[in-house]
Amino acid sequence: MAEILIKNVAKKFETYQALSDINLTISDREFMVLLGASGCGKTTLLRIIAGLETATSGEVWIGGKRIDHLPPKDRGIAMVFQNYAVFPHMTVFENIGFGLRMQKQPEAVVQERVKRTASLMHIEQLLGRYSGELSGGQRQRVAVARALAMEPDVILMDEPLSNLDALLRLEMRAELKGVLAESETTAIYVTHDQVEAMSLADRISVMNRGEIVQAATPMEVYRNPAAEFVAGFIGNPPMNFVVADRAENHQWRVAGEHYSGPKSDEDQIHFAIRPEDVVIAETGLDARVRLVEPLGAHLHVTCDVGGRMFRAVLDSGLEVKAGDHLKLQPQLDRIRWFDKNTTKALEV
C-alpha cells in the first residue's frame, strides 16, 4: 500500500511563495498528473515528495509513514528526470542496476531485474552501451527502466516526455501508460501538456500559482471545471466565456438570449460553453464571424459574441465565411456558470 498524503505543504523561496497550503491525497496505484503552466509549483511539489527539496511547512506521508524528514533514498520512491539523468560513465546495464546494487541486492536479483525491466522497456539489445551511444528516446527508456527496476512504492516523473520529438512522445506515452498500469505502482507525473495529462491520468491536479485549483478525473476536469482557470487551461481551443446579465427568476441574458442559470446575488456572472458544444440554429447567441479555419475534420470559427472572442468548432460541411451573422445554440446541459469576481464555478 502506498497511499500518498500531502498535508498543508507550503514552500517559500526567499520572498517568493512557490507553494501555498497544498493538500492532496493520492490513493494506492493511482496515476496522478500534476498539470500547470511553468512556474505554477508542480515540479517543486514533486521534488518535495522526492526529498530533493524541503517544504517550508507541512507534512508528506507515504504508505502511512511520515517521510518528509527522510533523505530521498529512504522514501520508497524512484524518479524519472526531464533530462533523463542517465549516468554517462556507466553502461545501460549498470545504470538500470545501480539502485539495486546500492541496496546491496544479491547479484542474481540484480541480473534478473535488470533484464526483466530492460525487456519491458524494449532495450535488451542496448544493455552494453553507454548513454553517449543512445538516442534521446532510448535514454528515456533507460531512465524509466532504472526507476522501475527499484520496484518503488511510488514513481515520480518530471516532464519525462518533454524532450522527445512529437512522434516519439506519442509512442512513449502509450507505452508508459501500459507499463505503469502493469507495475501496480503509485505514480505522480508532472507535465504542462494537457493532452498528455488527459490521456495518462486517473486523476489530474490542475495547479496555478502554487495552489491546486482542482483535483479530479480527466473528464470531470474537462466537463466541470472548478474555476475559470481550469476551463481556460484545458481544452484546445479552450472554453468560451460570455458575460451574463441578471434577468428575472434565475434567468440570465447572454448575447441576446435567455438561459436559466444559478441563483446568484450578483448582477453579472460568466456564462461558459466548450467550442464543440454549440451548433448553428434559428435561435441562440448572436455571433459575428471574424475568422474561419478549415481543419479538415472540423471548422474552427472565431466569432465575436457579446463583445468577446468566442470560438466554435463546427461541422466542416458548413458554408461559413468571415463577416457572417450566426445564431449559435449551446447544448443546454453543457452550459457552465462562473462567478465573475471569484472565478469559481457556480452551482445551478
Binding site: 526529498g51 530533493l52 533514498k73 549516468f87 539502485g99 541496496q103 532504472r146
Partner: peptide, 18 residues
C-alpha cells in the same frame, strides 16, 4: 556535471557521500 545526475543517485539509494 548536471546536478540531476547527483539527484538521480540520491533517489536510487545514495547518500550525498556515496
Amino acid at each position: 556535471i548536471p546536478v540531476e545526475l547527483e539527484e538521480a543517485s540520491w533517489t536510487l539509494g545514495c547518500t550525498r557521500l556515496t
